[in-house]
């Protein structure tokens, strides 16, 4: 199963700066094992020593949170997109640049 993995900026030191890397696996666990062979150290940033997803890491398969799809046992299909993102409290983040009408909103409308 070949899938695309979107890597957040903070972890691109493990992918030679690449935003998206290919990987294979029938499950998320399989995919992470595959990625580790080419991007050593990456898996350790996403999975704890106890073998669970790190609390502050969110992983999505086609925009759906894997924690509700079986976590590391979530099934993957060819062509899926896997996205890794740091957990962000709604709005509690830093934006930069000139257009900042919503920047710093610590109270997202949807909370």
């Amino acid at each position: 199963m070949s899938v695309d993995v979107r890597v957040p900026t903070i972890l691109r030191s493990y992918t030679g700066g690449a935003k998206t890397v290919p990987g294979t696996g029938d499950t998320l666990a399989g995919l992470l094992a595959d990625l580790e062979t080419r991007h050593p150290g990456l898996r350790g940033r996403l999975v704890t020593e106890e073998g669970a997803l790190h609390r502050f890491v969110n992983v999505y398969v086609n925009d759906e949170d894997v924690r509700f799809l079986g976590a590391l046992e979530a099934k993957l299909s060819a062509g899926d997109t896997v996205t890794v993102l740091p957990a962000v409290a709604g709005g509690a983040g830093q934006a930069s640049g000139a257009s900042e009408a919503l920047a710093g909103s610590a109270s997202p409308a949807g909370g």
Partner: peptide, 26 residues
Amino acid sequence: VYGLRNIDEGYVPELYDPEVLTRRFS
């Protein structure tokens, strides 16, 4: 927006209980 985020310094609101949800979309 995520660029400066360190994965080890994320934040999950104290109110959050994932057991209440059935699905979560990004």
